[in-house]
Nucleic acid binder design. Sequence first.
DNA 1: CGTCTCGGTGAGACTAAGTATCACTTGGAG
DNA 2: CTCCAAGTGATACTTAGTCTCACCGAGACG
Lengths: 144, 144
Amino acid sequence: MSDLEAISLKLEARGHRVTPSRRAVIAAILQQSEHFTVDDLLSYQGAGRATVFRTIRLLTEIGVVCRVLMEDASLHYRVSERGKHHHHVVCSDCGRVQDLDQCVIADVMRELSSATGFEIEGHWLELYGKCSQCRSRSRAVLAG
Amino acid sequence: MSDLEAISLKLEARGHRVTPSRRAVIAAILQQSEHFTVDDLLSYQGAGRATVFRTIRLLTEIGVVCRVLMEDASLHYRVSERGKHHHHVVCSDCGRVQDLDQCVIADVMRELSSATGFEIEGHWLELYGKCSQCRSRSRAVLAG
DNA sequence: CGTCTCGGTGAGACTAAGTATCACTTGGAG
DNA sequence: CTCCAAGTGATACTTAGTCTCACCGAGACG
Ligand SMILES: [Zn+2]
Ligand SMILES: [Zn+2]
Ligand SMILES: [Zn+2]
Ligand SMILES: [Zn+2]
């Protein structure tokens, strides 16, 4: 089963129609690498502006894509293999993204709940750094 | 020394002028409670739109205000008593904000650096929940 | 078969949160 | 006092998205 089919089924399962426009948006998304903006999708044609936004929102809601907050505070999207809550490390050099398997701060949050008096219910966490490839590349450059 | 004076000194120390417009923006900021948007400041008059934005950016850069990413992804600002890196817990009911003393995920990040191969250099973390007051209020309602 | 309905669509207007431009003003060093 | 870089503000522009509304079309119903 192709990715497009799998996503189509997921949509249908929730009572959404799989229209040509939506198929076009999904196809465009599947061609992106790492992460993309809605603007990247708009260049692909096949669905109007409003529909692209609506489709992205829909896909976000059903967990097919996830949102990535970049260091410059702009919002990108990314195909999510894991449907559930997770976090990313974004390479600030090449943009490569690594999904983290599970929520890395579940323990910390539990501690904080008792320390602050807040009942902590949600959080937003993004991590930024340099991936191993970019690090070895810059080491090579330094070494001449 | 008033807060306004303290901030003025901080600006001057970094080679920025303390102009009437900036004073007006700072005064407006000091009147806000918890957190605010740039729009909240615009209603105060005393500086043009562009200047309000420029001043907020400046104050963010020198650590006088910090940015708070709300659950709806909108960006708010908040006077920062601690100049250094820290995080917040935002009450999703009443909007109250609690600053966390130090970075709560420093340990987690260290672990991740070795686990992922990324050299993690930065992060963005916001926490959302219900403050103790809002929790006891809702308990009271439930109890009738 | 007709036709009704309702989810979906697209053009385009609108909004929110800023940034860019550029002529003008002004604080303060010399 | 003079001068100029820093700062200002009106306004145009941008980015990322939502809203509106007439229209389309697939399927349920008769
Ligand atoms: Zn990289
Ligand atoms: Zn998490
Ligand atoms: Zn509260
Ligand atoms: Zn931190």
